[in-house]
Amino acid sequence: MPSRRKLLGYLAAIPVIGSAGAAWASSTNPYYSGPVSDHFDGTRFFDPHGSEPKSLTGVLRWQFGGGPRAKWPDSWPIEGTDKPPARVDGDDIRLAYVGHASVLLQTRGLNILLDPVWSERVSPVSFLGPKRVNPPGIRFEDLPKIDIVLVSHGHYDHLDLMTLSRLAAVHAPRVITPLGQDTIMKGHDAAIRAEAHDWGDRVEIGNGLAVHLASMRHWTARGVFDRNKALWAAFIIEAPAGHIYHIGDTGYGQGHHFREAKARFGGFRLAILPIGAYEPRWFMAEQHMNPEEAVQVMIDCGARRALAHHWGTVQLTDEAIEAPRQALAEALAARSIPPETFRAIRPGETWTIGSGEV
């Protein structure tokens, strides 16, 4: 029989408990109503270049199949937490890794949080489910004034309603998210200033910056009956000194989305890419890329440098805690890519990219 940890390991991405499951059983969409499009059938969203996530049968095969699963430590301490400056002016980019998929990005006088999660667990309930093994790399009290929050999709390790409520109460930021995710947020707390946008939309955020929503190879859900009833997206931050490509979660597939991003935007100054939650490959490959594929994405999208995330904080899948960083180093060496151009830093660590760096 699998361990209790293994049974709960994928709770964040294959939700089995929901606070309003009965409502989601309806064939209608409780989150979004809009015209049919090339990625919305009137009820559910889909990726024309993607694939459906595995069925419940696949989940049970993985969880009960007895395959190898690395045991993470109960605690993997960090050296310390970051105390960010109030602002970073000009075209320098300061990146602070909060943990898992959460990053603070500071540039051109704006403070932008990506998929912020300060909760102890990534789960629909507070008392069980995947638990972080290190504290957030920035204490919530040490955050500078947050202007913009980008939330990529509704899985619990990316959309944390408790954190969004705390941010709304203290900072009142604009929250930019894909279609339907705003309904989830405002249903929890009307004070969350969520605004929803579609793939291809461009949103000006001030100080010469804009955010584009782009397709990515993934899916979304908050419960067992609402799969893909809201949209998921990557974000491209348009900036005068070079664009930034942020992907919360994605599979690689045939690489269509990443080559399309390069064709549209001409390459990127920085890509922020997930490298973890990829084993076993038979189950994860369509929705989560591995470190070797992340390096290929960096090449495909024309990014000059990349920051790794989605590793080393919460165990969702079977690989060991440091395996993503080790595999990333091997993949970079195999391509003769300098390791300093694609970094996997720990929570609490930072990386500043100067305006003159090419």
Rank of each mutant, 00 (worst) to 15 (best):
G99A: 09
G50C: 09
A196T: 06
K145P: 00
G251F: 13
P338W: 08
P136G: 12
S37G: 04
I299R: 12
A234L: 08
L113T: 12
H246Q: 03
V358F: 02
R139W: 04
V151A: 09
A277Y: 06
L8Y: 03
L167R: 03
S55H: 09
D157Q: 03
G154I: 01
V103N: 10
W24E: 13
W72F: 09
H197F: 15
F235C: 04
A20H: 14
L213T: 05
K54N: 01
V117T: 15
A22P: 00
F235H: 14
G206C: 07
H39R: 06
G180T: 02
H257W: 11
I337Q: 06
P77T: 13
L95V: 13
L316H: 15
G276W: 07
L307W: 00
R94W: 04
V59H: 13
T250H: 04
A329Y: 04
G18E: 14
W282A: 01
G99R: 08
A169G: 06
R69K: 05
E322W: 01
L179F: 13
P77V: 13
P84F: 04
P324G: 07
S215T: 02
H256C: 01
S102G: 14
D300Y: 08
S3M: 06
L7Q: 13
G90H: 05
P35L: 09
W62P: 00
E293Q: 15
D38T: 05
G348T: 09
H155V: 05
G208W: 08
R4P: 00
S126L: 13
A230L: 02
D82G: 05
T350A: 04
S165Y: 09
P338F: 06
I321H: 03
N134T: 14
H49A: 11
V36F: 02
I148S: 02
A210L: 07
W118K: 00
A333F: 06
L213W: 08
K131D: 00
